[in-house]
Design a binder for these strands. Structure first.
Length: 105
DNA sequence: TGCCTGACTCAGT
DNA sequence: GACTGAGCCAGGC
């Protein structure tokens, strides 16, 4: 068995996303050296570390907020509290809010 | 063991 | 610019 399951690795990377920044499912997958974009979303959906892992900082590659276990609205609210503006379900200046790969690795 | 699903992404029309 | 189909991977039944 692996030291950490795929899901655990996803959460670990997600926790590295700095406050006020966001990362995409794609970035998370790449940081784990895989292309399992959907598996990443799956892992976050089942995320048992609700407040510990900032899963609300993970969005879609086109800037969309994606989904959230507690409701998309809640996700947007949390992001805006951290200074990330969300309009029409999309992250404003998404490209600039995106965190760098090196920060995740 | 094998098929289905999913908080996705990309390419083509 | 928007919609559709196909591809990708891990987890669950």
């Amino acid at each position: 068995m692996m030291l950490s399951s795929f899901s655990e690795r996803v959460w670990k990377v997600t926790k590295k996303i700095p406050r006020g920044s966001v990362a995409t499912y794609k970035d998370i997958a790449y940081a784990l050296h895989t292309k399992a974009y959907r598996a990443v979303g799956n892992a976050l959906n089942k995320n048992p570390h609700a407040p510990i892992v900032p899963c609300h900082r993970v969005v879609k590659s086109d800037g969309g907020v994606g989904g959230f276990a507690h409701g998309t609205v809640k996700k947007i609210t949390l992001l805006q509290k951290e200074g990330v503006i969300v309009k029409n379900g999309k992250v404003v200046e998404f490209e600039k809010r995106k965190v760098a790969f090196s920060s995740l690795r």
